[in-house]
Design a protein around this nucleic acid. Structure first.
Lengths: 213, 213
DNA sequence: AGCCTAAGCGGAGAAAATTCCGCTTACAAG
DNA sequence: CTTGTAAGCGGAATTTTCTCCGCTTAGGCT
């Protein structure tokens, strides 16, 4: 069912690969390989799925059945990195992983997220473009849950759900790109800003109920 | 020139209408009228510029010469509201306009921005979709300048530029939509969250240099 | 080995965005 | 009123996204 305000339906979560026919697996691999090569050559912003299909030697239908839409393919290209990233903050070593105090983990997490976005700027920009078709996709809510949990640990009196969004929202490809490329800010300045934001949130005045000032 | 990372060029600022031929002005009017009718009828997400052109009795070329691209047209539809909004916070009565203390103005401003986005959700979603083609457009930076100025007034020791982005980032159509529609949060909860965020920023611990915690 | 069928395939084609360019015309200057 | 010309026009053509549906085949079953 499509939402009547934004006209989209949720992006199917790309879970663990369910049993897949051999030819299907081979095609998936080919498509992903071609796509990442084309992106490396010319940038994610002019990736044409027709061309991917042609170069991969499959029909466009195959690409679409597998990945749903343009954004789905781009997301699949990030998926592997994302899994690694999730492993890092969920089970990896401190300060990103468990073991460090929550404020340190928050800082480390947001900084790592920035690094990921900078490393593959154009792919993330592409992802955010398609986002209005795919909505906030799986990984966003995983990150949200993580940040909210750390916040709840450090400051149980706050509205963790809201503040998690508030901390994640500035860490987006478009803003980072504009800061770095158009506004001439440095990465360090940006990260220092995030640290300051985290500090501000963690030291927020205590209010009567969660979410109040 | 196109940016080689994101492949876009800046959205031309829609300034005051420069002298325009009579037929051009008439066509602009027709296009805008048809577009807003079609959006009212069927939602911004399925606005087809071909159809707009047909119904307005002009060629598609005319639509594109005038508005540049899909996002340009959508933005033009918001332009009038935006002007009113800008007038309100720059020269209107308090608490949004000058006269109230900066913290009150910040709260009022963000709440007003939320209301604007809620009132025309689908148009703003559309705008954010096109954003990666148009980049952060004029109004974003006007809002940013405004928020940064208020922050600088209240807390001259902070990195106003960064925190302005941090306050604006959570007020976006996609997040608001997901909170309200998918997550079942109320508008009041969201606004209360923003108030708390502002409070946290304004009470941030004082650091050695701007931007540090 | 032969059969069955659901999963997978592919490409024509519909729909939408955006570009291009030769024709038309508003309107200012004479 | 005539004329020159820059501004404006329109729509065919190009490009890309995404859908549809009839054909093919991998691989389990006997």
């Amino acid at each position: 069912m499509l939402c009547d305000v934004c006209g989209r339906e949720p992006l199917p979560v790309l879970g663990q690969p369910q049993p897949e026919r051999a030819d299907a697996a081979r095609n998936r691999r080919r498509i992903l390989d071609v796509a990442s090569r084309l992106i490396a050559e010319r940038g994610a912003h002019q990736l044409s799925l027709d061309e991917v299909a042609r170069e991969a030697g499959v029909g466009v239908g195959t690409v679409y059945r597998r990945f749903g839409h343009r954004t789905g393919l781009v997301w699949a290209l990030i998926d592997e990195h994302e899994r690694r990233f999730q492993a890092a903050f969920m089970t990896g070593p401190p300060p990103v992983g468990p073991g460090a105090p929550p404020d340190a983990r928050l800082r480390a997490f947001l900084r790592a997220r920035v690094d990921r976005m900078v490393a593959q700027q154009d792919i993330y920009l592409q992802l955010e473009l398609g986002a209005s078709k795919a909505g906030y996709s799986g990984p966003y809510w995983i990150h949200h849950t993580h940040v909210a949990a750390l916040l709840a640990e450090a400051r149980p009196d706050l509205d963790a759900g809201f503040f998690a969004n508030a901390l994640l929202a500035p860490v987006n490809a478009r803003l980072i790109h504009s800061q770095l490329v158009e506004r001439g800010r440095s990465l360090d300045e940006f990260k220092a800003g995030l640290d300051a934001l985290i500090t501000a949130v963690l030291h927020a005045p205590r209010g009567g109920r969660p979410g109040e000032a």
